[in-house]
Computed example of a mutant assay.
Amino acid sequence: MDFASLIGIFSGISLIISAIFLAGDIRSFVNVPGMMIVLGGTMAATLLTFTFREVAAAFRAAAFAFTKDREDPNAAVETMIRICNVGRKKGLLELANLEPDSDFLKKACGLIADGSQEEEVRAALRTEIDSLKMRHFAVQDVFKKMGAYAPAFGMLGTLIGLVQMLSKLADPSAIGPAMAVALLTTFYGSLLSTMIFLPIAGKLKTRTISEVMQLEIMLEGSIAVMKGSNPLMIYEALSSFIPLRDRLPLEKMDVRQGAA
């Protein structure tokens, strides 16, 4: 569970609601027509921009990003050193029998065991990384677009409310509800954009950066295994991807030969 995200969302919403309570009545900020304009319009525009499958995939990815902890890059370094030990003691052909959790790493081990050249391995794995970036970009773009659409529909709702207000100036009792729609739709659009959609897009981007770093570690580690580098050299090369304060010393890593 990503507690930082949960704390951010709940604290932000709680502070906004508390400010509303301190300044007046929260019921004044509930307007069904305004919600219909902003939420309905944002979802409609999103479905016009993307396919239903892409939108559903984006929401699944968001749920995954907020519920699963980020992977530790030190674990990837440990895995590559263990694979190095297997290759040095049993030969590179033995890598084909490994069953790593990562499909990416499994592909790398298969390519190495098959006797592929360094350029071929690097090109194949680089294609996998680039494809992952493109898929993740498409998911992030869904929430970026929603973050842009929500304020736009908020302004559209404001115009609708102003037109309704101006058309009923002769009836003072109708001016208040129309003005509420005019103001609250802008509020709803800004709230959804700044508190929900854009932060989710940012969260997905950070997860992409983290996952790409994991794959880069596996790629460079695989090339080092092909070259027959020793575990210390592999550790020094791969730990460079990790900030100094977060690096786990080699002596504290579990790099005993075993399943990757």
Rank of each mutant, 00 (worst) to 15 (best):
Phe153Met: 09
Ala124Phe: 09
Ala113Ser: 10
Ala150Met: 03
Glu128Cys: 12
Ala124Gln: 09
Thr127Trp: 10
Phe153Val: 02
Arg135Ile: 10
Gly110Glu: 01
Phe137Ile: 09
Cys109Asp: 08
Ala124Leu: 14
Ala138Asp: 07
Cys109Glu: 05
Gly110Lys: 01
Arg122Phe: 00
Val121Trp: 01
Ala108Asp: 03
Glu118Gln: 05
His136Thr: 07
Cys109Phe: 11
Lys144Asp: 12
Ala113Thr: 02
Gly154Lys: 05
Ala123Trp: 00
Phe153Lys: 09
Gln117Asp: 15
Met155His: 10
Met146Tyr: 12
Ala123Lys: 04
Lys144Tyr: 11
Ile112Trp: 02
Val142Met: 03
Ala152Trp: 13
Lys145Met: 10
Ala152Pro: 13
Met146Thr: 09
Glu128Gly: 05
Asp114Gly: 11
Lys133Trp: 04
Gly115Ala: 08
Val139Trp: 06
Met155Ser: 09
Ala124Asp: 06
Asp141Pro: 06
Phe143Gln: 06
Leu111Pro: 01
Phe137Lys: 13
Met155Ala: 14
Phe153Pro: 12
Gln117Lys: 12
Arg135Asp: 15
Ala124Glu: 08
Asp114Ala: 15
Ile129Pro: 09
Pro151Ser: 07
Asp141Gln: 13
Gly110Ala: 05
His136Trp: 07
Arg126Ile: 02
Cys109Gly: 03
Tyr149Leu: 07
Ala123Cys: 01
Glu119Trp: 06
Ile112Leu: 08
Phe143Gly: 04
Gly154Gln: 09
Glu128Leu: 09
Gly115Arg: 01
Glu120Ser: 01
Met134Asp: 14
Tyr149Pro: 01
Thr127Tyr: 15
Thr127Val: 12
Leu132Lys: 06
Lys144Cys: 10
Gln117His: 13
Gly115Cys: 03
Asp141Ser: 15
Leu125Glu: 06
Arg135Phe: 09
Tyr149Ile: 07
Ala138Met: 14
Leu132Trp: 01
Ala148Arg: 10
Val139Gln: 10
Leu156His: 07
Ile129Met: 12
Lys144Ala: 15
Met134Cys: 08
Ala113Met: 02
Val139Ser: 12
Asp130Leu: 13
Gly154Pro: 05
Ile112Val: 13
Ala124His: 06
Gly154Arg: 05
Arg126Trp: 09
Gln140Phe: 02
Ala150Leu: 03
Ala150Gly: 10
His136Asp: 11
Ser116Tyr: 06
Phe153Gly: 09
Glu119Ile: 09
Asp141Glu: 15
Ile112Pro: 00
Ala108Gly: 06
Met155Glu: 08
Arg126Thr: 15
Ala148Tyr: 09
Glu120Leu: 00
Ala138Leu: 15
Glu118Asp: 04
Gln140Ile: 14
